Computed example of a mutant assay.
Amino acid sequence: MSQKDKLLKLADENNGILLSKQVTEQGFSRSTIKSLVCDGLLEPIQRGIYVTKNGYADDFFLLGQKFKNGIFSHETALYLLGFSDRTPIQITMTFEHGNSTTRIKNEGVRPVMISNDFLLGRTTIVRNGLTIRVYSIERTLVDLLKPRYEADYEQLIPALKQYAAYDKKDVNKLFRYARQFGVEKQIRNYMGVLL
Results as ranks from 00 to 15, higher is better:
residue 24 T to R: 14
residue 67 F to V: 03
residue 48 G to S: 12
residue 191 M to I: 14
residue 5 D to M: 03
residue 10 L to C: 06
residue 70 G to E: 05
residue 98 G to Y: 12
residue 52 T to I: 15
residue 25 E to N: 13
residue 129 G to P: 03
residue 108 G to F: 10
residue 150 E to W: 14
residue 179 R to D: 12
residue 84 S to F: 10
residue 105 K to V: 15
residue 98 G to I: 04
residue 174 L to G: 02
residue 100 S to G: 09
residue 9 K to Q: 10
residue 122 R to S: 08
residue 189 N to S: 08
residue 151 A to K: 11
residue 120 L to S: 13
residue 140 T to F: 13
residue 4 K to I: 04
residue 116 N to R: 15
residue 119 L to R: 03
residue 85 D to M: 13
residue 17 I to W: 00
residue 142 V to H: 10
residue 47 R to I: 02
residue 19 L to D: 08
residue 9 K to C: 05
residue 78 L to R: 11
residue 186 Q to T: 05
residue 176 R to D: 11
residue 148 R to V: 05
residue 73 S to A: 15
residue 190 Y to M: 00
residue 195 L to R: 14
residue 133 R to L: 07
residue 16 G to D: 02
residue 186 Q to N: 05
residue 179 R to Y: 13
residue 157 I to G: 05
residue 154 E to D: 15
residue 105 K to A: 07
residue 61 F to L: 11
residue 147 P to C: 06
residue 192 G to E: 01
residue 178 A to V: 01
residue 188 R to A: 14
residue 66 K to C: 06
residue 178 A to C: 06
residue 4 K to H: 07
residue 172 N to I: 08
residue 187 I to D: 01
residue 46 Q to Y: 09
residue 107 E to T: 00
residue 64 G to P: 03
residue 43 E to P: 01
residue 89 I to R: 10
residue 104 I to H: 03
residue 151 A to D: 07
residue 190 Y to P: 02
residue 54 N to K: 15
residue 121 G to V: 05
residue 190 Y to L: 06
residue 173 K to L: 15
residue 5 D to P: 00
residue 135 Y to Q: 09
residue 17 I to G: 05
residue 47 R to A: 10
residue 154 E to W: 11
residue 104 I to Q: 01
residue 141 L to C: 07
residue 10 L to Y: 11
residue 110 R to I: 09
residue 59 D to I: 11
residue 42 L to M: 06
residue 89 I to F: 12
residue 59 D to L: 09
residue 122 R to D: 01
residue 84 S to I: 03
residue 190 Y to E: 00
residue 61 F to N: 05
residue 40 G to D: 01
residue 176 R to Y: 09
residue 56 Y to E: 12
residue 157 I to C: 08
residue 23 V to L: 04
residue 4 K to W: 03
residue 54 N to T: 13
residue 161 K to L: 07
residue 36 L to D: 02
residue 134 V to T: 00
residue 46 Q to C: 09
residue 99 N to P: 03
residue 192 G to D: 08
residue 138 E to Q: 12
residue 134 V to Q: 08
residue 76 T to E: 10
residue 155 Q to D: 13
residue 170 D to G: 03
residue 41 L to E: 14
residue 32 T to H: 08
